[in-house]
Design a binder for these strands. Sequence first.
RNA 1: GGGCGGUUAGCUCAGGGGGAGAGCGCUUCCUUGACGCGGAAGAGGUCAGAGGUUCAAAUCCUCUACCGCCCACCA
Length: 867
Amino acid sequence: MAEKDIPTQYDPAAAEKRWYPEWVKRGYFHANASSDREPYCIVLPPPNITGRLHIGHALDHTIQDVLIRRARMQGYEALWLPGTDHAGIATQVVVERALREEGIERREMGRDAFVERVWAWKERYGGEIVEQMKALGNSCDWDRLRFTMDEGLSYAVRVAFVRWYEQGLIYRGERLVNWCPTDRTGLSDSEVEHEEVDGELITFRYPFAEGYDFIEVATTRMETMLGDTGVAVHPGDERYEAWVGNRVRHPLDGREIPIVADAAVDRDFGTGAVKVTPAHDPNDWEIAERTGLPRMNIFNADATLNDNVPEEFRGLDRYTAREKVRDRLAEKGLIVKEQRPYRHAVGHCYRCKSEIEPWIAGMQWFVKVGPLKGPAKEAVAQGRTRFVPPRWERPFDTWLDNLRDWNISRQLWWGHRIPVWYCPNGHETVATEDPAKCAECGSAEIEQDEDVLDTWFSSQLWPFSTLGWPEATGDLKKFYPTTALVTGYEILYLWVARMIMAGLSLVEKDRTRTGDHIPFERVVIHGLVRDGHGRKMSKSLGNVIDPLDMIEKYGADALRFALARMATPEQQNLPLSEASIEAGRNFANKIWNAARFVLQADGKPELPERSRLSVAERWLLSRHHACVTAVNSALDADDFAGAGQSLQRFLWSEFCDWGLEVEKRRLAGDAKQDAANTLAWVLERTLRLLHPVMPFVTEEIWQRMGPGESIVVAEWPEPIPDLADKEAEAEFAAVQGIVTEIRQLQAGIPRELAKAVALDEGMREDSEKWLEDIRLLTGAAASFEKLDGIRVALRIPGGTDLAPVVDRLSKKLQDSESKLERKRKKLSNEGFTSKAAPEIVEKERTEAGELEEEISRTAAQIRQLGG
RNA sequence: GGGCGGUUAGCUCAGGGGGAGAGCGCUUCCUUGACGCGGAAGAGGUCAGAGGUUCAAAUCCUCUACCGCCCACCA
């Protein structure tokens, strides 16, 4: 028999190498837009091309692959569309760093050469990422692989821009932007991370231009006082009423600046007077807009001080300047109070973590979000797009409410260049194709905007640009709206919200499958992978788990199972330890060996006629049915952990621990083919159920069982209600009870036997027919002296110390007695018997009866053991 | 300053009104013809604390404490 050669250990690497290319070659992952099957589509959140996939991707991808593989087996036209993101800032920074190591500066090499280098990077790392996804087993449609800077997607970006421009949703303006002095670009509000830091709040005096009075103001950013162009107080503040309109003298550069009144000032904070730095604070910017204070920019692009400040401060970085300004004011006796540490929130760049500087970076393009919010809120409120878990809906709503216009200009080279051309006469030409001349005056001296678009501008189009939008393609018609979007909560706002707004605004309803232009019907929001102790994984902590290392060490299935096993819909932290991946490996091996056993018994996945089934087999089928039901309902609820747990329980604790063991006896007798076939049938069907989570080991076994072409395209198991068998479950549960009881007695009693103990007063009537099974399951065939009817006997050698066994039994007796006590009390409580549901009362009665039986049995056992 | 989540066995977490569960770890035993990446039997928990609702609370409600996260232009 060839099966004899099956190794006792599953070899993941061999299976992965064998099956993945085969699946791709056979085209299983390719979706057909013209098929008449129901569509099921997921677009992969495109990983950045900045480097390797990390464990978070592995989780994200595992979930998606489980969904898409199940859908494929269920007969849907399943499309999982993969791709990568150009990731503007992130990639530019990484490439710049790499160049710097070669001693090359970006600005020296020029824009075109630099962009060329980034493309080379993309070719290399983009390709690596695809290989990594394949190693995980992702069943993506590689024929549809996309990149955000593809020709098609770039065109979609231009069309989106032009359309919004024409609708007045995109405008240009000079505003204060979130400037990252390290990356030297502006950022949107969503790209700024607020973090509490310890600073100091310093109160100082502005002396009046005339006379000896002064006004006190406070700041955490002393250096910005060099750019102050006014002091503001609340209009109704009687303390300062008389001073409004007066002027104070700037103590460091001698400028006279006015005191103004503005309602934005909180009179209860600090002194009730605020220094106003319009060019470097959003609040102050607005005050200046209202009061007419001038703007005075004091920073260079790298946040060093520029020539607008007194000479001694020029060129200093902001932190050095902060101290120096304080020192100068202290020397002049103008510092009133220094409060430190003073905790306050400071914005940081989401990429490089530098402190953000509000700065005027010239003209910037903005998206007007007001008109986009409403439809997005409505789509979620109406459940056209469903959030899983739904508790994210409220924060999503609040976030939209507070959303302000979106700055989309980035002072970078890598990305989609803004499709606007300026002519010397001050006209703007906005076009999807590069124009040769100004659309308004015909001037040929046009120049394209130097900036590129925010990365998220192209990402927001992903669910439809990848399907061919703006063209009315077959893919769009077939697969849009997509079925599910799977992502971590960290980019819910940054990305998901924008896709919803963009889809609703841009996609034409009549080009979609359902007539609704929402980008996805459901958003599955999973948690973040942490280390085994719930800490964030980071290089500095040294607790990073690299998915590819894990695949190499334990196999892709092991990693996938470990990840799926912890992905409950509610959890936001998902602690992953190497031990849990090892457990996944062990599980794969367990299944492997179970299959080996079934194959050695020559099992064929065919179910014998019901009349030929043993009670144990009926029990196994019933449990299998329960597993199919549980897995289906868990997956319907996006509860991957629940599905994994059900599968593991059934296969390990039921199929292997009881099913295979009890079948060993039948396998040695006349019914052996029926027994082997039943096992094979259950195993084969359960393998299909497990396949989406553990694609490789299931395929490897399935191929050896030979029921068809590939498990990838096998039919998904749905519950078969006829398999549910309450009688068989009850009877087998009783047998399990007897077996466990005997095992408990055996523990601590050596095999060499002398003393016979009659165990079983009043045991279940039909236990006789199970005696052979019980012998086998307790592994104690030789130890049974006689088994007449309801009596089970054990022989124990003389001189055996029975005290531990008796102790254990005594403890069990006590437990049972106190349990019984509680039940009796409950049952004698009239409140309970009259108010509780009748079936609950009945259940309590039954259980009390069972406890009584157990108590007398245990007591008898203690007596027989001489306790 | 708003909001959300968490607190259950040594560790990491399920459970979500009527018998405290899993995996890992730990103890003892088992070279039983699928698997030692295995099998069997165990030890270990006033389910954070206080109050309330209920015949019945780990589970529902209120408050408190601690942990974590998200949002936020109060100098």
